[in-house]
Each structure stands twice: as structure tokens, then as C-alpha cells.
């Protein structure tokens, strides 16, 4: 291969990883094809659709707009590893998405969940409007968004009424 490579070490979903990667490889392709974390998806490669959303050093980012080499030394979480130490928040979101059918094809879902998770961590009681606003960078083509908004609002309400231990 003609690509120039670099060695990177990083933590992905709690595990230390060291790999040689072509410098032009973006983070989501690295996670998917080099590490097999295929939960993050590729929908546009221009940062517009949100399917590739992953968590980099505790903040959501577009996995297609970060080079794998830029994540050297960083801590990355994908949907496969999300929810560690979050007091059950991600598991509740996943359960509520399931219950309310807040997904169809599932391609946007990991990104949608990570965005919703970030919102509820920063703002435990968002209004519907705030939920729609925060998720407005994640494209879903199947649902009408409403079940997604319902699910996030329902988790928020449930945690207010019965805070997790």
C-alpha cells in the first residue's frame, strides 16, 4: 500500500490498543475495519449525518472528521463500550428505544444514542424542544424522530422520578 503509516496507541472501549495505521485513515473506518467495532456507521463522510458519532475524550465527535492518528493517546468509546460508569443511563436509553420503537433500520441508532446520552448527562431534564435541538445533527430516515424524542424524554422523566442508585 502506498499510504504513509504511523503507530498509534489509544484506549478503545476500555482496552488499550496499539496499531499501525495509514495516516489518511479516519477514526470511524479505523474503529470499524481495524478493530471490528462496527457499531458506528458511515453515512456521508462529511460530518453531516451523525451516523459515525463516537465519544472521544468524553465528548461526541464525528468519527469521519477525525483522523485515527489524531486519536493517538486518546480515550474512545463506541456504542459497544458506551455506558460504563454512567449509572445505568445508556442501558435505560437502549431499553426505552426498544420499548417505544425509537428505531427502525438501526443505522443511525448508535449515533443517536450517544448524542442523547451526552445530552442527558449535561441536562438531565431537557424539554422536547431541547431534545430535538440536541439531536438535530443526527439524521434518521426511518422514524419520524418522534419516538426517539419520546424515548429520551421518558428516560429523563423516569430518572427524575426514580433516580438510579
Amino acid at each position: 500500500m502506498s499510504s504513509k503509516s504511523r503507530r498509534i496507541t489509544l484506549t478503545v472501549n476500555g482496552e488499550a490498543v496499539a496499531r499501525d495505521v495509514p495516516v489518511r485513515l479516519n477514526l470511524v473506518d479505523f474503529l470499524r475495519h481495524d478493530l471490528g467495532f462496527t457499531g458506528s456507521h458511515v453515512g456521508c463522510e462529511q460530518g453531516a449525518c451523525g451516523a459515525c458519532t463516537v465519544v472521544l475524550d468524553d465528548q461526541t465527535v464525528r468519527g469521519c472528521l477525525v483522523l485515527a492518528v489524531q486519536a493517538d493517546g486518546c480515550v474512545v468509546q463506541t456504542i459497544e463500550g458506551a455506558g460504563n460508569g454512567d449509572n445505568g443511563l445508556m442501558a435505560e436509553l437502549q431499553a426505552m428505544f426498544h420499548l417505544l420503537n425509537a428505531l427502525q433500520c438501526g443505522f443511525c441508532t448508535p449515533g443517536m444514542l450517544l448524542s442523547a446520552h451526552e445530552l442527558l448527562q449535561a441536562n438531565p431534564l431537557p424539554s422536547r424542544e431541547e431534545i430535538r435541538d440536541y439531536l438535530s445533527g443526527n439524521f434518521c430516515r426511518c422514524t419520524g424522530y418522534q419516538a426517539i424524542v419520546d424515548a429520551v424524554a421518558a428516560v429523563s422523566r423516569a430518572r427524575r422520578e426514580a433516580p438510579a442508585a
Binding site: T53, R62, V66, S136, G137
Partner: peptide, 9 residues
């Protein structure tokens, strides 16, 4: 400006 994940970078 854009959306949260973009503003983070």
C-alpha cells in the same frame, strides 16, 4: 454553528 459533535472539534 453546526451541531454539538462538530463544536467539540
Amino acid at each position: 454553528i453546526a451541531h454539538p459533535a462538530v463544536r467539540h472539534r
